[in-house]
């Protein structure tokens, strides 16, 4: 993430000033809406996972405005969002709160500030990498990859625990054990990789990341 834009922001972090807010506006999806929050707290009250978040969306918006860069980007709260869209529906100021949460999570991930070992982040990474490889999700490797996230022993334990389900899927011809050797891809894999690369390039340009 060696990036001039981000570095400039990092070096200039006064509290309750606009620097971090501007960074968010420039780099986060729908970040320009953060300043429009009027702190009513309806999002915090509407979130079904509300009690499990360290910081509610309301608080995260206030923290951004207060210039709390490390606390916000290092928070796992945005990763808790399940995209139920309750907050978006209810927000009297019509902030796209769900999108902002994902945008913040994505930004934190890209600049390497997202919390290590955060399960949602880990699974999302696993899913993305699995998907990009062949252009389609390889369910067997994805599942196994997920089982072994927390180490070999727990992986084996989980896999054994899921044995009967796996066997059932196999009998019903819903699971092909041969997929473990890489599996099948989309027809034009090269073309698919080109699409993904182009999309990344566009997004990077939009959000100020240079390749």
């Amino acid at each position: 993430m060696s990036n001039a834009n981000v570095q400039a922001n990092l070096s200039n972090l006064a509290r309750y000033q606009n620097n971090f807010l501007k960074e968010v506006e420039a780099n986060v999806e729908e970040g320009h809406m953060v300043k429009m929050c009027m702190q009513c707290g309806v999002c915090a009250g509407s979130c079904p996972f509300g009690p499990d978040w360290e910081h509610s969306p309301q608080k995260i918006f206030m923290m951004i405005r207060a210039g709390k860069r490390d606390e916000v980007l290092g928070s796992d709260s945005m990763f808790m969002c399940t995209s139920c869209y309750n907050c978006i529906v209810r927000c009297p100021r019509q902030l796209p709160i769900t999108h902002i949460m994902h945008g913040l999570a994505n930004y934190a991930h890209r600049i390497g500030m997202a919390p290590k070992g955060q399960p949602t982040r880990q699974f999302a990474t696993l899913f993305w990498n699995n998907l990009v490889k062949k252009g389609r999700v390889n369910e067997l490797t994805l599942t196994l990859g997920h089982y072994f996230t927390n180490g070999l022993v727990s992986g084996i334990k989980t896999a054994l625990g899921m044995q009967s389900i796996g066997l059932g899927l196999f009998m019903a011809k819903r699971l092909n054990p041969m997929e473990i050797f890489g599996g099948h891809g989309v027809k034009d894999l090269k073309g698919f990789h080109a699409i993904v690369a182009k999309a990344k390039e566009i997004e990077d340009r939009k959000k100020g990341f240079t390749a």
């Binding site: 309750y16 606009n18 807010l21 300043k35 429009m36 009027m38 702190q39 206030m62 405005r65 207060a66």
Partner: peptide
């Protein structure tokens, strides 16, 4: 708010 005035409770 659109102009970037910060409101703090």
């Amino acid at each position: 708010q659109e102009k970037g005035v910060i409101f703090t409770k």
